[in-house]
Design a protein around this nucleic acid. Structure first.
Lengths: 227, 227
DNA sequence: ATCTTCAAATCTGTCGACACCTGTCGATCC
DNA sequence: GGATCGACAGGTGTCGACAGATTTGAAGAT
């Protein structure tokens, strides 16, 4: 229930370490989507036995990054337009809920921290205009904080532990874009304002629109690649 | 991604079998909430080695039925009012979404099957009025079918594999009640009608109300026990 | 009597090995 | 020539055992 990547992400056990490495490799595409994973091979590659590797694989399955078929084997997921839509449908609902809850559950101090994070994003964004840093880390970190602010453990687990890496995988491997960055920042700011004003309904609505826009963006990107 | 309990639930491997047994025992309370699970002890009890047991435990953690603390051990979750509220908040959103999707994604044949299921529930309900059969299996099976009808694999996984058993655990261990049964049946029928009419918005709204009412019901039950 | 300290006991994480299953390739038969 | 069948290789599921960590409990000190 408590992993909270990007923040405290120290591997305490061997299976943790392997999990983080494989997770990262899959998200970044070093391990190609759709490829098969052989347990003995990966166990050798990461210098562990099959036991911790299998535990890591079990957790990767939880993140929807791999798929197991009994007695057959493990495959990295394949990214599809349908999968992207299904994923974002859920994000809209759950992150909308997260905003509504955060508007009542986040203490002032946490809201202030989030505002500071946004300011920091702004400066980083201006410096490295066009780079993918913002979209890859910053955008997701904002969402991350809002979700944590909901204080709903199941919601946090689902979004931050189970769906987070798959979302990143889609964004990284679909290739990230430029022009939406500044607009996304404004949308984040509006959402934060709604939360600060304790207006859960508005924050919910804005977040749904924000995610919907992001989905349309990726869908366009995807359709452009298809030509 | 494809377990689909209650329907095709045949244990293909040893860890499957152990998973089902422990899952059932936890939901029914045979293994008390909050109790610690010793891996060697349970391995002996179910006549398996620790390897398949650990895999079963990993999957139980996915269902939020147990909690692991590194290097410490495994404990069955404890049921709390806060946990119940958090759980139902998510159910409202996700099952609402499921209804909206089902209204456009369910083929006519599947809707007809669901209608038949409801009729069957009606007869069973009239025969064994007051028994808990309806609430425990029938009600959840209706929800189950609607979720499957959404055709969204992540949604199906989350609700049917990850949250389903925890919901059942709350309902079973909080003790199930009588008077809401017939009202719940009418609500199911209304939801089905909305789906059959391809009115996703209405189905969404009705499902949210239905789950909200169910939550209030359990909360009352819980508050009544506290006196 | 209470708190501290330490050691035994237990448990978790990890390892290497074995049985059964799966998928493949080649041989045989129609 | 195509299809069926059977051996082979590789892999997954499972087992028993060991090392490090943790909790328990008792002994000792204050």
């Amino acid at each position: 229930m408590t992993e909270h990547p990007n923040l405290m992400r120290q591997a305490i056990t061997a299976s943790d370490r392997v999990l983080f490495e494989i997770q990262r490799a899959i998200v970044e595409g070093s391990i190609p989507a759709g490829s098969k994973i052989s347990e003995p091979e990966f166990a050798r590659r990461f210098n562990v036995s099959r036991a911790p590797l299998r535990e890591a694989l079990a957790r990767l399955e939880r993140c929807h990054l791999i798929e197991r078929t009994p007695n057959a084997g493990v495959r990295v997921v394949t990214l599809t337009p349908e999968g992207l839509i299904s994923l974002y449908q859920i994000r809209e609902e759950l992150e909308g809920l997260a905003c509504r809850l955060a508007a009542t559950q986040m203490p002032q101090a946490e809201i202030a921290e989030l505002a500071a994070l946004l300011d920091q994003h702004l400066s980083t964004q201006r410096v490295r205009e066009g780079e993918s840093y913002y979209q890859e880390a910053g955008d997701l970190d904002f969402h991350y904080r809002v979700i944590l602010g909901s204080k709903n453990p199941y919601l946090i687990n689902m979004l931050c532990d189970e769906l987070y890496y798959l979302v990143r995988m889609y964004r990284v491997q679909m290739g990230m874009n430029g022009p939406r960055v500044s607009r996304a920042f404004d949308e984040h700011k509006a959402i934060l304002n709604a939360i600060a004003n304790r207006d859960g309904e508005l924050a919910d609505l804005l977040m749904r629109r924000h995610i919907s826009a992001s989905r349309h963006n990726i869908e366009q990107q995807l359709q452009a690649e298809r030509t």
